[in-house]
Amino acid sequence: MIGRTAWPVRALAWGLVGLLVLPFLVIVPISLTDRAYLSLPDHALSLQHYRALFADTRWGEAFLRSLIIALCAAAISVLLGTLCAFGCWRLAPRTAHAVRALVLLPLIVPAIIQALAFYRTWSDLHLINTYTGVILANAILAIPFVFIAVSSALSHLDPRLELAASGLGASLGQTLRWVLIPLVLPGVFSGALFAFVAAFDELIVVLFITTRGMDTLPKMMWISLDYDLTPEVACIAVLIGLLTIALLLAEFVFGADTKRQAGNSPH
């Protein structure tokens, strides 16, 4: 330890972190306003806009639709991303490097370009405005999150465990099932959560590859931002935020502590 940071720097840092969280903290009271428009509560807190939100079936349908899409997309990306991370772990460095570059590509390519690309190909394959199309696109975009989380968990694993298992006569399938996957389960869990959140929140690609009747929650929110800014939008924003907080807490408790690992292992 070289002692604490000088207090002005520390105060500035905490001020900045406060500003980061502030917008979300502010929409909570706004969503509880007793007025008919977006503002802080005047006299009392009121749940009227939450009631209106739950009474409006369109929001409920959009939530279910987003949930189905995110769950399916996360399932596909967890399966493919985990297997791929295992493969990369033991492949020759040159091959592994090429695979890694390909699999991480969706993180780097700007969303608008992916949206154009998906739109063009999905129209040819008649996947526009279908669950299959939206799930497939979201699964592809979520694979990198799973891949990174599982790779990070694997990098802390002793490769001799795999040798020991195969030396004792286990097939690759058995080694994976009984030895490797249980050891990196927290990493898989983190990857699954991140994949779910990414797929649940995806907006731009969904805007391009869906038309009417396929509104996800973010898409509904986007449309109402354009047309009518009602307090219901603030309620939806709060609910999405609470869902994210819950998932992140679950990740902190059950997931691989990838953050600390990232800090500890600068390779």
Binding site: L79, C84, G87, P106
Partner: peptide
């Protein structure tokens, strides 16, 4: 020939066909 290559294949195939190809078409 490594069996580990089989593990990366599904992800590589999906991303290659349904992601990289659409990008190249753009």
């Amino acid at each position: 020939l490594s069996p580990w290559l089989l593990l990366v294949l599904p992800a590589v195939a999906l991303i290659g066909v349904m992601y990289l190809t659409p990008l190249l078409r753009v």
